[in-house]
């Protein structure tokens, strides 16, 4: 056991582990590493903290938006909370599941790992922007036909990844579909139907 003579004011990671190891008593968890308090802004909603923001202009589903974002805001947060495009889902919030996949200038990205600041000037496509008014994108239609979903929460991410896959490879075989969708997780486990949907859509898109 270490000596307990020195009393540190701050709580460190070492204290934390020590506390577990020896069942030491009296360890206080009071983090002191908070950033300085932000300025306060008076709004209709009451007082809220104010952070510095930067203006960005993005095109989402062919609509232009000009908005001020904080440096910490992710594209996912902006889409869901500011633009109310909730079709893009947050599942892991750390780039592990693919449910938040959107097209950024045609390339599939995890929007939870993409800072909104860095999308200034970009064209973004979300699940809400795929259908041509009432006419579904062939991949969307194929997902319905092949029952390529269960709870449906991962579906927008899978569809967007599939769009990107078929853009680069018009006629993928099963292995190519599998690797093309390897960045998305379907917890209900409906992968087999998803492959079928993508394959069916590729045929439909090729013939039209």
């Amino acid at each position: 056991m270490e000596k307990k003579s020195k009393k540190r004011k701050t709580f460190t990671r070492r204290d934390f582990l020590k506390g577990f190891g020896g069942g030491a008593l009296g360890a206080a968890v009071v983090p002191k590493y908070l950033p300085p308090a932000p300025a306060v802004l008076q709004t209709k909603e009451g007082k809220i903290p104010h952070y510095s923001r930067k203006q960005i202009t993005i095109t989402v589903n062919q609509k232009n938006y000009s908005l001020e974002v904080e440096p910490r805001e992710t594209l996912l947060q902006v889409l869901r909370e500011r633009l109310n495009l909730t079709g893009t889902k947050m599942t892991c919030d750390r780039g592990e599941c693919g449910d938040c996949t959107v097209l950024l200038d045609g390339i599939p990205v995890y929007s939870c790992l993409t800072l909104a600041l860095r999308t200034d000037g970009a064209k973004i496509t979300t699940i809400e922007g795929l259908a041509d008014k009432e006419k579904l994108h062939p991949i969307q239609q194929a997902f319905i036909d092949k029952d390529a979903y269960q709870c449906g929460f991962c579906t927008p991410g899978f569809i967007i990844s599939s769009v990107a896959l078929l853009k680069g490879n018009k006629n993928p075989d099963l292995e190519e579909i599998k690797s093309g969708l390897a960045g998305n997780i379907c917890r209900c486990g409906n992968y087999s139907n998803i492959y079928e949907a993508v394959s069916a859509a590729s045929k439909r898109m090729g013939s039209s």
């Binding site: 079709g87 889902k89 699940i127 809400e128 579904l136 036909d145 979903y149 579906t155 927008p156």
Partner: peptide, 16 residues
């Protein structure tokens, strides 16, 4: 029978 709520799910309109 394909799902009657399929369209909502594939267009991101299904509200969770």
């Amino acid at each position: 029978t394909t799902r009657i709520d399929g369209q909502k799910i594939v267009t991101g309109q299904a509200l969770y």
